[in-house]
Design a binder for these strands. Structure first.
Length: 468
RNA sequence: UCCUCCUUAGCUCAGUUGGUUAGAGCACAUGACUGUUAAUCAUGGGGUCUUUGGUUCAAGUCCAAAAGGGGGAGCCA
């Protein structure tokens, strides 16, 4: 077979290599469909660079019957052929095959992907093969684009990518149940004389876990480099079984010195709008596919978010609106209670019909590190609420006053001595600062229009499920 | 973890008040068609009805439990 440098399918379909028309080129990829009659066959070939396929035209007279039989849905091919303008409708260019090599066959009796009709639930069971489908190809290309855009957004604004640790010894973050990390022999656990686990014999000589948030370490970065962000995996051992929770997910946590709550809100809104706009400008083909297949209003909803200001509202005002709502809630509403999903959904989807940033929550329902307001009752927390997916961002201005911070720690039962390194930020050169956390997969739910968070991460981790 | 629904061919589903050989579309095989667009048309093969136990002359169908999955809730991002 003639050795020709491979061209990626996106370049052929986007017209980037039109100077090759009339010449022999090489493409490589996986077969999506094969159809035709006894004289001619059409193979739709996809290499993952773009959602669309290149059409390979095969004159059967010049090819071995045996090789054509082995070309089935899912097989991987190397194809040499002449790039020509297409005779048929539906594509601008196609490849008139001259030579075909089969890299790998896909047995039709056992290859689970077919030309038609797979549910997302079925594809979840074959997560190792689902990226070969149009849907998951689109989702994961968008996932990449969003990850890239996150780094670009922060780099352009002079934020530094800060690597907070994955393994942590601080369990005082209060953000959820943690996965323990240990090298102890679980069949023979060393015990102290009191009968407790003897962690002094463990790898770190103390009890450690996977991180539930990089925020506390992020604050150390902000109070030295000025503006930082983290972007990494996060782990929660909660027994959450919903379409919005994973036990392993990715989170972006910016943290900024000298930012007050207002600045924090502005950054959060700019950030989300930037990402959504980036998707609109750079992932058009994939978004159009997802819109056609799953969500007819996807693109208009994304455009709406980019073009409209988020509503900004104090918790107290939200309670007033909910109390006046002409709708019965399962959970009664009153000042001081945390908002339930039904309440958030009412505000975002019914009352305002746009994203809402809620601020100044009662201190009792928020984390200890949030800056206390002068009213003595509320803290400078902010939650960004989105239609369909609920809380997409949670953040706050941080308490920089060490006395107030220690007092809150004691209120909620955290031993200040165990957080000495954290309190040192307030002890030495403390400063006003703020930050927030954005759930990466929840952002992707919004951008792709998918409804189950397990469908926007390649290998979802949920209770009882760690396959692949 | 709680509530609720689902599990029938490789995939997506139908299956009547419990009744004799469990159906369809797609996929697959064979054939037809000189360029198809998830091609079309014809014919054909393909099922321990998730598992276990129970009720009954008789269970895909009724009851119970388990496993897996969906939706809602809580926890949160």
């Amino acid at each position: 077979m003639k050795d020709i440098k491979r061209i990626e399918i996106i370049d052929l379909l986007k017209g980037n290599r039109n100077e090759e028309i009339g010449k022999e080129i090489c493409v490589k990829g996986w077969v999506r469909t094969k159809r035709g009659n006894k004289n001619i066959a059409f193979i739709a070939l996809n290499d993952g660079t773009i959602i669309h396929n290149i059409q390979i035209v095969v004159e059967l007279a010049s090819f071995d019957e045996e090789i054509m039989r082995r070309i089935t849905t899912g097989a991987c091919l190397r194809v040499n052929g002449k790039l020509v303008e297409s005779v048929g409708q539906g594509q601008n260019v196609e490849v008139q095959a001259t030579e075909i090599e089969i890299y790998g066959e896909a047995d039709v009796d056992t290859y689970p992907l077919q030309k038609k009709g797979h549910t997302l639930e079925f594809l979840r069971e074959i997560a190792h093969l689902r990226p070969r489908t149009n849907t998951f190809g689109a989702v994961f290309r968008i996932r990449h684009a969003m990850a890239y855009a996150i780094h670009k957004f922060y780099n352009d604004r002079r934020f530094f990518y800060w690597h907070s640790p994955i393994i942590t010894a601080s369990d005082a973050e209060g953000a959820g149940e943690m996965f323990q990390v240990t090298t102890l022999d679980l069949n023979n656990i060393p015990k102290t004389p009191e009968g407790k686990v003897d962690y002094s014999q463990d790898f770190y000589s103390r009890q450690t876990s996977l991180t539930v948030s990089g925020q506390l370490e992020g604050e150390l970065g902000a109070l030295s480099l000025g503006k930082i962000y983290t972007f990494g995996p996060t782990f929660r051992a909660e027994n959450s079984n919903t379409p919005r929770h994973l036990s392993e997910f990715w989170m972006i946590e910016p943290e900024m010195a000298f930012y007050e709550l207002e600045d924090n809100m502005n950054l959060a809104e700019d950030f989300i709008k930037y990402l959504v706009n980036y998707a609109l400008e750079n992932c058009k083909d994939d978004l159009e596919f997802l819109q056609n297949m799953y969500d007819k209003e996807l693109i208009s909803r994304l455009e709406f978010v980019v073009n409209n200001d988020f509503v900004r509202l104090k918790y107290t005002q939200a309670i007033e609106i909910l109390e006046k709502a002409d709708q019965k809630f399962e959970f009664p509403i009153a000042w001081g209670v945390d908002l339930q999903s039904e309440h958030e959904r009412y505000l975002v989807e019914k009352h305002f019909k746009k994203p809402v940033i809620l601020v100044d929550y009662p201190k009792e329902i928020k984390a200890f590190y949030m800056k206390q307001n002068d009213d003595g009752k509320t803290v400078r927390a902010m939650d960004v609420l989105f239609p369909k997916i609920g809380e997409i961002i949670g953040g706050s201005q941080r308490e920089e006053n060490i006395e107030k911070l220690v007092s809150r720690m004691k209120d909620v039962g955290i031993e200040p001595d165990e957080m000495k390194w954290y309190l040192d930020t307030r002890r030495f050169g403390s400063a006003p600062h703020s930050g927030f956390g954005l759930g990466f997969e929840r952002l992707l739910l919004f951008v792709t229009g998918m409804v189950n968070i397990r469908d926007v991460i390649p290998f979802p981790r949920t209770p009882h499920n760690a396959e692949f």
